[in-house]
């Protein structure tokens, strides 16, 4: 017995020594799954050049907001921007990091990426449960000549609090009054139909595994997992492919204002080439955590300087230089840059 006790004590001491020696140079962040592919790629490269470990956990934008409000992380990330008054209430600041597009993806046998056309009407009716089969007249009408199967549509949405959902439902609310009235927009909504996947990851996984399903994910997830993306009709009435250029056209339409803490949605952007469902993803910082804020800002400054190429490879739109400078001035005004 004595031996066992002494082994226990020995273990305890060695672990305590071990535990404390690794403290420091870690930044903990959590939130949106939308930018996870690019943040994790940046964090990987940043770790190589600086030694700083940026631990980004993609739990969902709702989680990012909650955890930074509770101050359990160094920064929160959300694709749904917070209104300036909400920021004030929780003593937070907010800036955009990168811009991306949300893309409806489908899994229908015989339909390849970029073959199926959808418009806002159809999309909202599918998610309201009013269109149930793939060979619905409305879908056939804008897809002449496509062999659409008489199969029930499996709707996949998010189960967690999600900025991708916020962008997607904001888009549906903008274009469909029916949706706005029945469901509304937010990071979590009351879904009329479908099954919920956890994170962009979970939605992509379910769409991949379930035949005749439809889901919505950030474009990088569609690309990395070779899911079949769809073509959408934009506000100018043109059918556009999700691509770097169509996202960029949407991004260029927006005017981010530092005075409003950059609060802005990019949905249903005007312009013939613009992709209709896009948004910036934001970083949330707690004002009182000044020390860690400086480290977070250092990371994003590095990403602004060196990370554009990585972002573009994953089809995210880096912020334009003018906006980057606005963000830098914003940082300066809070003495964290």
């Amino acid at each position: 017995m004595n031996k066992i006790i002494s082994v226990f004590i020995g273990l305890a001491i060695s672990f305590l020594a071990f535990g404390s020696s690794f403290a420091g140079n870690t930044i903990n962040g959590a939130g949106a799954t939308f930018p996870y592919p690019v943040y994790s790629a940046w964090a990987y490269e940043y770790n190589k050049v600086s030694g700083v470990k940026l631990n980004y956990q993609s739990i969902g934008s709702g989680g990012g907001i909650r955890q930074i409000v509770n101050k359990t992380v160094d920064f929160g990330a959300s694709d749904a921007p917070l209104k300036p008054e909400e920021l004030k209430k929780n003593n937070l600041i907010q800036f955009p990091a990168v811009i991306g597009g949300v893309v409806p993806v489908v899994n229908i046998r015989g339909i390849k990426a970029g073959e199926l056309r959808l418009d806002s009407d159809i999309l909202s009716m599918i998610y309201l449960g009013e269109i149930n089969y793939w060979d619905n007249e409305k879908i056939k009408q804008i897809n002449p000549g496509k062999a659409l199967p008489h199969k029930e549509i499996t709707v996949v949405h998010r189960s967690d609090g999600s900025g991708t959902t916020a962008i997607f439902t904001d888009y549906l609310s903008v274009i469909s009054s029916d949706w706005k009235e029945k469901v509304g927009a937010g990071t979590s909504v009351k879904w009329p139909v479908g099954i919920g996947g956890k994170g962009n990851e979970g939605v992509a996984n379910y769409v991949k595994r379930l035949d005749y399903s439809i889901g919505y994910v950030e474009f990088a997830y569609a690309k990395q997992n070779s899911l079949a993306h769809t073509i959408l009709k934009n506000s100018a009435g043109q059918f556009v492919e999700p691509s770097f250029n169509s996202f960029k056209a949407a991004a260029d339409s927006g005017d981010f204002d530092p005075k409003k803490d950059f609060y802005l949605w990019l949905n249903n952007a005007p312009g013939k080439k613009a992709w209709p469902i896009a948004g910036a993803t934001f970083i949330l910082l707690a004002k009182e955590k000044k020390g860690s804020n400086i480290n977070v800002v250092k990371f994003y400054e590095w990403a602004f300087e060196k990370g554009d190429k990585t972002a573009e490879e994953l089809v995210y739109i880096p912020l334009p230089v003018s906006l980057k400078n606005k963000v830098r001035a914003y940082w300066k005004s809070y003495n964290i840059y």
């Binding site: 071990f18 535990g19 404390s20 020696s21 690794f22 403290a23 420091g24 870690t26 903990n28 770790n47 470990k53 631990n55 956990q57 996947g197 956890k198 994170g199 990851e201 979970g202 992509a204 996984n205 991949k208 997830y221 990395q224 997992n225």
Partner: peptide, 24 residues
């Protein structure tokens, strides 16, 4: 990341399995 700092988030196999198996 690798972290043995018990005062911060620490990775575990089971939570990682949950994240990875749910992912695409």
């Amino acid at each position: 990341f690798f972290s043995a700092n018990m005062n911060g988030p620490v990775s575990s196999l089971t939570v990682t399995i949950f994240q990875y198996a749910m992912g695409p």
